[in-house]
Measured scan of single mutants.
Amino acid sequence: MGFKLLSKLLVYLTASIMAIASPLAFSVDSSGEYPTVSEIPVGEVRLYQIADGVWSHIATQSFDGAVYPSNGLIVRDGDELLLIDTAWGAKNTAALLAEIEKQIGLPVTRAVSTHFHDDRVGGVDVLRAAGVATYASPSTRRLAEVEGNEIPTHSLEGLSSSGDAVRFGPVELFYPGAAHSTDNLIVYVPSASVLYGGCAIYELSRTSAGNVADADLAEWPTSIERIQQHYPEAQFVIPGHGLPGGLDLLKHTTNVVKAHTNRSVVE
């Protein structure tokens, strides 16, 4: 069995187990497998329904001669939608809004960016022009300005110390501490036991640490421990890039980060 097929099978099995364990909360999309990078042309966006009122959005972007996937989250909030992270750029984010209108038909009224990198804030200006209120932590807003990236308009308070959590509509926002970046936030959907790890969490097929220019490698494993301790009931975990899975993604990420750190020390 090929690795790609095995990865998709694991996603399907995880979703099936969740649907059985929580039949009222989960209505997993039966329309197909989780979209992969090879299936999404740059400039297009796919939506994948995880649970009743919960979707991931998947886009792709060219970077350094390669094409990478990027995940975000959409959560229903009454007759409105909360968006977590842009679709990595203005063109993708405009396509995301169009796809949401086509498939869901509810307005996106608020959006949260989970850290300051372009795959999370690139497209904020498109959201703002569409009347979406954009939010991020003060740290993310400051770092985005320093980096020359787009800056969300509103500040999220109460997320300055490791372990801080605040309720934001249908989700809980959690600051686990520094990891992929010093400002990275985690998003949890309690009604569906869905954990969105953003770039602080890796997919299972990833074996290298990737972009760690703004990471705190020493603190990252401790931050992941905080996530595990705060959300032990999480059933569906979405990484910032690639295929979702279960809580095993947290341990896998820790292993990859520690291996990278150990290699760096040896070198």
Rank of each mutant, 00 (worst) to 15 (best):
M1A: 07
M1R: 07
G2A: 02
G2Y: 03
G2K: 09
L5R: 12
L5H: 01
L6N: 15
L6R: 11
S7C: 09
V11N: 09
L13P: 07
I17E: 06
I17V: 04
S22H: 05
P23D: 14
A25Q: 05
F26M: 05
S27V: 06
S27A: 09
V28M: 08
S30P: 10
S30Y: 08
S31A: 07
P35V: 09
T36K: 04
S38A: 08
I40T: 05
P41Q: 09
P41G: 09
V42Y: 05
R46C: 09
Q49I: 06
A51C: 08
W55M: 03
W55T: 07
W55N: 12
T60Q: 03
S62C: 13
F63C: 10
A66N: 04
V67E: 08
V67H: 11
P69H: 06
G72F: 00
L73C: 10
I74P: 03
V75G: 13
R76S: 08
D77W: 04
G78K: 15
E80R: 13
L81N: 03
L82V: 15
L82W: 13
A87G: 12
A87M: 02
A87C: 15
A90W: 10
A90Q: 14
T93D: 00
A95R: 09
L96T: 13
L96S: 06
E101C: 08
E101D: 14
Q103E: 08
Q103H: 10
Q103R: 08
I104P: 02
I104E: 01
G105C: 02
V108F: 00
V108D: 00
V112G: 01
S113D: 01
F116G: 07
F116W: 13
H117Q: 00
H117E: 00
D119M: 02
G123W: 02
V126N: 06
V126Y: 15
R128T: 05
G131N: 04
A136E: 10
V146I: 02
E147D: 04
G148M: 14
N149A: 03
E150H: 14
T153L: 01
L156R: 08
L156W: 15
L156G: 03
E157C: 06
G158S: 07
G158C: 07
L159I: 13
S162W: 09
S162K: 05
G163R: 08
G163E: 08
V166E: 09
V166A: 04
G169W: 04
V171E: 01
E172L: 12
L173M: 07
L173H: 00
F174T: 07
P176S: 08
A178Y: 01
A178I: 10
S181F: 01
I186Q: 00
V189K: 08
P190T: 10
A192G: 10
A192H: 14
S193Y: 13
V194C: 15
L195N: 06
L195V: 08
Y196T: 13
G198R: 01
C199K: 02
I201C: 00
I201K: 02
I201V: 09
E203V: 09
L204Y: 04
T207R: 09
S208P: 08
A209T: 05
N211V: 12
A213F: 10
D214Y: 06
D214E: 09
A215W: 11
D216F: 11
L217H: 01
I224R: 02
R226W: 10
R226M: 15
I227A: 08
A234I: 14
Q235F: 15
F236S: 03
F236D: 03
I238N: 05
I238V: 08
P239D: 12
P244S: 11
G245K: 12
G245Q: 07
G246A: 06
L247V: 05
D248N: 01
K251L: 06
H252T: 09
H252G: 07
T253P: 01
T254V: 09
N255I: 09
T261P: 05
T261S: 02
S264T: 11
S264M: 14
S264I: 15
V265M: 15
V265A: 08
V266G: 10
